[in-house]
Computed example of a mutant assay.
Amino acid sequence: MPTTIKEKTVLKFEPVHLSDLTKITDLYFSQTGIEKENTNFEQPKLTEEFGFPIYKLVEGNLIIGYSYFTVNSSEEIVFKAIIKPEYSFGDLESRFINQSKQKYLSKKELDRKGMKNSIMRMVDWLNWSR
């Protein structure tokens, strides 16, 4: 009788580092349906919807998701996540968002204006550096 070995998937929850931003922007473009390159050889620009990445989900060396915050039209801070569909099972996304929010807010004071400025500076810098 053949033996079936099931691999256990181990996902790690880690802070986002500057060196992760290229992979995170690639993941963002692939999951939002925005074409990374268009016919004019120009890359699309990021907007404030990209948010400010704070934590990543990693399997091995592969970033499979990241959490971020944005500021909505009512000036409220909203925590969100993007996870590759093949890894998004059960309530992983909501648990990831909740853990990210809890961990981030335990280290930082909620400053809506400062957080909004951080998003704009991050997006501008990423658009300039690509």
Rank of each mutant, 00 (worst) to 15 (best):
L92M: 03
R112V: 13
L57Y: 09
I54Y: 08
I97Y: 01
S94T: 14
M115P: 03
Y68H: 13
K101W: 03
D91S: 12
S73M: 06
Y68M: 10
F69V: 13
I77Q: 01
E59P: 04
I77N: 00
S118Q: 11
I54E: 02
Q43R: 06
L57S: 05
N117G: 01
Y55I: 05
Y87K: 06
E86F: 08
I97G: 00
K101C: 02
Q102H: 13
K103Y: 03
S118F: 02
Y87W: 12
K103D: 06
S94L: 10
T47I: 14
F50G: 00
K103E: 04
L57D: 06
K56T: 10
K45Q: 10
V71E: 07
K80Q: 11
T70L: 01
L105Q: 07
D111K: 15
L46W: 08
E59F: 11
G51Y: 08
R112Q: 06
A81H: 10
I64A: 07
E86C: 08
K45V: 00
E49T: 07
I97F: 01
S100M: 06
L46C: 08
S118L: 03
P85N: 11
E93S: 04
K101D: 02
V71D: 06
R95A: 11
L62S: 10
K113E: 08
F50N: 00
N98K: 11
F52I: 12
F69I: 13
F41M: 14
S118G: 10
K56M: 12
F79G: 07
N72Y: 11
E49R: 11
K113G: 00
V78I: 15
P44S: 14
G90A: 04
D91Q: 04
I63T: 15
D91H: 09
E75S: 02
G65K: 11
N61R: 14
I82C: 02
E109L: 11
E49W: 05
F41I: 10
V78Y: 07
E48G: 15
Y55W: 09
L57H: 08
P85G: 10
S67D: 15
P44E: 10
Y66M: 14
I64M: 03
S100F: 05
Y55A: 05
R112M: 03
I77F: 05
K116D: 07
K80W: 03
